[in-house]
Amino acid sequence: MMVSGAGAVFVRELKQAWSGGGGVSLPLGFFAGACSLTPLSLGPEADLLRAAGPGVLWIALALSSLLPMERLFQADLEDGTLDAYAGSGVALEWVAAAKTAAHWVSTGLPLALIAPVLWIMLQGPVSSMFQVALVSSIGSAAFFFFGAIGAALTAGVRRGGLLITLVALPLYCPAMIFGSAALYGAASGGDWTSPLMLTSAAALFAIACSPFAAASALRAAID
């Protein structure tokens, strides 16, 4: 029952994200836009872009991950779906985990897939494209699962986007620091695996904590 419920929610959220546009295109567009505007504002010097590029890419990825968060739980709270989930006996922890995982698959992974293209635009070496995709996909998992805590806490708040940012950004710090360190390592050909391990640790911590924190916030929201 718990697992079938969570599986059904996961599949539904994936379909919702890809049908009717909306959910996925905004963060992708924002990510691509932020990275492609960088050479225009910093100037086209390759050395400058090489120095700033990994950091800019990582900041843009973190902020793009925050964009879909506002609606993550809000729509379900408003239309009564969350009441139905909570009244069904399926634990809200499963629901929160399934929804967040589906959002990461539908939005976070596409962000990680276009990251190597943007990396080239920021004068990153072609040889490290694979590393960029890997670091971005793990980092975006940390961003999405931490972001879900903020999303759940502000689900009942109209225009709660700013509050989500305030709640989530402190939690983003470890993944911010180690993720960009991994990208700089990949760019310079230096050590990129140990910062990647630490980024993965942050992501695993987020995946482990987020369903519980989000579920208790959601229980307070429907009370």
């Binding site: 079938s4 599986g7 929610v9 599949v11 919702q16 239309d79 009244g87 399926v90």
Partner: peptide, 29 residues
Amino acid sequence: PRHYLGHADGVKPNETALEQVCFWARFFG
């Protein structure tokens, strides 16, 4: 086990009626 039907219907605007019932069927196993 109990069913709770609140006064909000929990109907998604962009899913067809059949999709929504099928979703809940899978949800309940």
